[in-house]
Simulated assay, not measured.
Amino acid sequence: MDPVPTEAPAVPTRTSAPRAGGARRVERLCHATGVLLVLSGLAHLVVFAVDGGPWDGPVSWRKPVTFGVSFGVTLIAVAWVTSYLRVGTRLRTLLLTVFAADCAVEVGGITLQAWRGVPSHLDMATPFDTAVSMTLAVGGGVLVVLLTVFAVVSFRHRPSGPAGMDLAVRSGFAILLVALASGAAMIARGVVLTRTGHQEAAYHSTAPLKPLHGVSLHAVLVLPALAWLLSRTPWSEPLRRRILSAAIGSYVTAVVGAGVWAALAY
């Protein structure tokens, strides 16, 4: 009689614990960095209240306020939303780490120039100002690449999460691409005008696209947050999806409206 086969000894394998731990660490990093950026923006709102000065224009306290709050909220939102994407833990950790660092550099450069009393973008007056301006421009390009990668992943593989989260995440990233495109257009147009000696025109050239950029930037937080809140209600899934679809339609209408206004203003 043949001997009864015994179970083969277990082969040591890598468990998911280190990867889960890495994911949690990078999320904590993004959350902490995002909170610091938001607090920096709010602190400069106090500086503006004390110091005064214009709210609009290339040199104002508005820029560290709005960029600090916006970048901080976006960083926290992206760290949360990407947890629903079907992407490798190592890749997500790398992308989020670079994204957090880039957000800090962007807000840091803008804040530095505000305290120096000079424009942060499109300023080529001195070698130092040029270095800061180009660093911010390159940083903006890095943001475009990172967020585009996340957007592509969201469409290649259906995001996980409660009912409707897949639609919310994909819609949020799709609208975010509009924000990235408008931001890139502002930088490109401004750089061209600056290089051709139209510095003042470069500062004013970005105004028409700012509403479009601002409205479309935060869809990646608003829509998934709505899907999450709806999943906590006792309403039926078809009703939740109808509400979410209506919200997405309203958001798209707002983005289109801002785009039409930008086109007419140009």
Score class of each variant (00 low, 15 high):
L45F: 07
M186W: 05
G88D: 15
T206Q: 13
T111V: 10
G259K: 09
P119K: 06
F173R: 05
T135L: 14
A254Y: 01
R195A: 14
V107Q: 06
L45E: 02
P18M: 09
A20N: 10
F150H: 04
R86P: 00
T194Y: 00
A202C: 12
A77W: 01
V169A: 11
L229I: 14
T33A: 15
S171Q: 07
V11Y: 04
W115F: 13
V252W: 02
G72Q: 02
W228K: 07
L264P: 00
A131G: 08
L96G: 03
V256K: 05
V118S: 12
D56S: 15
H204A: 15
A202V: 12
A174C: 09
P159M: 09
V149M: 02
L180I: 05
S83F: 00
A246Y: 03
G34N: 10
L75F: 03
L39H: 06
L29V: 14
L146R: 00
V118M: 10
A265W: 12
G53T: 06
F67S: 06
L193P: 01
L212W: 03
G139V: 09
A43T: 14
V50Y: 01
G109D: 09
L146K: 01
V118T: 15
K210T: 14
L29R: 03
G57S: 09
F173M: 12
R195M: 14
L193D: 10
V47G: 00
V65G: 01
A43I: 13
T15N: 06
P159F: 09
T135F: 04
L217Y: 04
G214W: 04
Q199P: 00
P54D: 13
R14I: 15
L143S: 08
G68K: 02
L39S: 08
S154Y: 04
V11H: 08
S182E: 02
V144Y: 07
A17Y: 03
S205T: 13
G21Y: 06
G197K: 05
V178A: 10
T66C: 00
A185K: 08
S250M: 15
D102N: 15
G259R: 08
V260D: 07
T111I: 10
A207Q: 11
L94F: 10
A174G: 12
L244C: 05
V142K: 01
F155A: 09
W115Y: 14
V256W: 02
A227Y: 04
